[in-house]
């Protein structure tokens, strides 16, 4: 109940901020369209697009969540909530549901446009692709929540984006396939969760098989999201200094 009330509260906040919603939903699509015409080649676009369908929701959810939670900490609404009978899990799941819904919208629009207009093949189906990208968005959300605990100002929170997100983007296999990287970089990319999301997305565009590797990759992304969410919960303290 309180989880749903929280989700509804966040969605209402978003409804009052149409510009943010429009940016969140349409920006990934716009960037994909831009990329398609920059490459000016369907095969090149098809190679890069799956990774980007994961990276955009991941990044956007990271930023939106870290700023939203930081704001909640700063305006003392969090302090007030902590005096009320609400579990931290209610708050976290409320965030997850609200931002998860936005992520679904974001991914469905971006993937549909890529598929119907930009020539991206999705052999595994739009549904599976959306599922993976939404898991990925939840991962970004959970990491943003965790990162916000270390930011004192919104400036710092925005700076965490390059710190937490960019290394994962560089190492996820978008620019250079992961197995062609220097050994050390390959190891690092092996422990970064975005790599597994991108592998899964790439697989779903190329094949309709739901094989063990795909399931393992999905499981890893989900597990990382849960771990980040638990770490985020630890940072939402009832008592503060």
């Amino acid at each position: 109940m309180k989880t749903l009330a929280t989700a509804q509260r966040i969605l209402t906040q978003l409804r009052h901020d149409r510009r943010t919603v429009a940016l969140m939903v349409l920006m990934p699509t716009f960037l994909l369209v831009l990329l398609r015409f920059v490459f000016n080649s369907e095969p090149m676009f098809s190679r890069a697009a799956p990774a980007l369908l994961g990276i955009f929701p991941f990044t956007i959810m990271f930023i939106v969540t870290s700023i939203t939670t930081l704001r909640e900490r700063q305006t003392t609404t969090l302090e007030r909530l902590m005096t009320m009978p609400i579990a931290r899990l209610d708050l976290l799941l409320g965030y997850a549901i609200a931002f998860g819904l936005v992520a679904i919208l974001q991914v469905v629009v971006a993937a549909s446009v890529s598929w119907l207009w930009l020539g991206l093949e999705i052999k595994g189906g739009l549904g599976l692709l959306t599922l993976i990208a939404v898991l990925d968005a939840l991962l970004g959300m959970a990491m943003g929540l965790f990162a916000s605990a270390f930011a004192r100002t919104e400036f710092q929170a925005v700076q965490f984006m390059p710190a937490f997100v960019m290394p994962q983007v560089l190492l996820c296999g978008l620019f250079v396939p992961r197995d062609q990287m220097a050994t050390v970089l390959n190891w690092i990319s092996d422990v970064l969760p975005l790599s597994y999301a991108v592998d899964a997305l790439t697989h779903v565009t190329r094949s309709s098989d739901v094989d063990g590797t795909l399931l393992r990759n999905l499981f890893i992304v989900l597990a990382c999201a849960v771990v980040a969410l638990v770490l985020g919960a630890v940072t939402l303290r009832r008592k503060t200094p």
């Binding site: 906040q13 009052h16 901020d17 003392t76 609404t77 302090e79």
Partner: peptide, 11 residues
């Protein structure tokens, strides 16, 4: 009730 208003500005 906290000293600084603890309500959501965008609601």
């Amino acid at each position: 009730s906290t000293q600084n208003p603890a309500v959501y500005a965008d609601l």
